[in-house]
Simulated scan of single mutants.
Amino acid sequence: MISHPVTADLFNGLAELEDTGRGWLPHRLPRAARARCDDPQLLSAQAQPSGVRLAVRSAATVIELDLLRTRVVLTGVPPRADGVVDLLIDGRRVGHAAVYGGDLVRIDPRTGASETEFGDVATLRFDGLPPQDKTLELWLPHYERTELVGVRTDAPIVPVPTGRPTWVHHGSSISQGSNADSPSTTWPALVAAARNLDLVNLGFSGSAMLDPFVARVIRDRPADLISVKIGINLVNADLMRRRAFGPAVHGFLDTIRDGHPTTPLIVIGPLHCPIHEFTPGPGSFDVEALAAGAVRFVALGDPDDAVGPNVGLRRLTLRGIREQLAEIVHERQVDDPDLSYVDGLGLYGPGDEAAHPLPDNLHPDATTHRLIAERFGAVLGALSRRR
Results as ranks from 00 to 15, higher is better:
His169Tyr: 08
Ala192Trp: 01
Val228Arg: 08
Val235Arg: 01
Arg257Met: 07
Val217Met: 03
Ile268Arg: 01
Pro165Asp: 09
Leu190Thr: 12
Val217His: 08
Ile174Glu: 11
Ala194Thr: 13
Ile226Gly: 06
Arg219Gly: 03
Ile256His: 11
Val168Phe: 05
Asp220Trp: 02
Ser207Asp: 03
Thr166Glu: 13
Trp167Thr: 05
Pro247Trp: 09
Pro161Ser: 11
Leu234Ile: 12
Ala215Met: 05
Leu199Lys: 01
Asp286His: 07
Pro282Asn: 04
Gly251Pro: 10
Ala223Ile: 10
Ala189Lys: 03
Pro161Met: 08
Val267Thr: 11
Ser184Asn: 03
Leu225Ala: 07
Arg241Val: 14
Arg221Gln: 15
Asp224Gly: 13
Gly177His: 04
Ser175Lys: 03
Ala192Ser: 13
Pro274Val: 04
Pro161Lys: 05
Thr263Phe: 03
Leu197Ser: 11
Ile256Tyr: 11
Leu271Gly: 04
His170Asp: 06
Asp254Lys: 03
Val191Trp: 08
His276Met: 15
Val191Gln: 08
Leu197Thr: 09
Ser182Phe: 02
Glu277Cys: 08
Ser227Val: 07
Ile218Lys: 07
Gly231Trp: 05
Arg221Pro: 12
His250Ala: 10
Ile275Cys: 11
Met209His: 14
Ser205Glu: 02
Leu253Met: 13
Asn201Pro: 11
Lys229Phe: 10
Asn196His: 15
Phe285Gln: 00
Gly163Thr: 07
Asn179His: 14
Gln176Trp: 05
Val191Asp: 11
Gly171Phe: 00
Pro261Glu: 09
Arg242Val: 11
Val235Gly: 04
Leu190Asp: 06
His260Met: 07
Cys273Ser: 12
His250Thr: 06
Gly206Trp: 08
Ala215Lys: 00
Pro247Leu: 12
Ala248Asp: 12
Pro274Gly: 06
Ser284His: 13
Arg242Glu: 14
Ala248Asn: 08
Asn179Glu: 09
Val214Met: 13
Leu271Lys: 00
Leu202Phe: 06
Ser207Thr: 09
Ile232Thr: 15
Thr262Ser: 15
Ile230Cys: 07
Trp187Ala: 01
Pro280Asn: 07
Arg219Ala: 13
Arg164Pro: 07
Ser173Asn: 10
Met209Asp: 11
Gly281Thr: 10
Ala237Gly: 14
Asp238Met: 08
Ile174Arg: 01
Thr186Glu: 04
Asp258Arg: 15
Phe213Trp: 14
Trp167Cys: 02
Gly163Asn: 06
Phe252Gln: 04
Gly171Asn: 09
Val200Pro: 10
His276Val: 07
Asp211Thr: 09
Phe204Asp: 02
Thr185Pro: 00
Ser184Met: 02
Arg257Tyr: 03
Pro274Met: 05
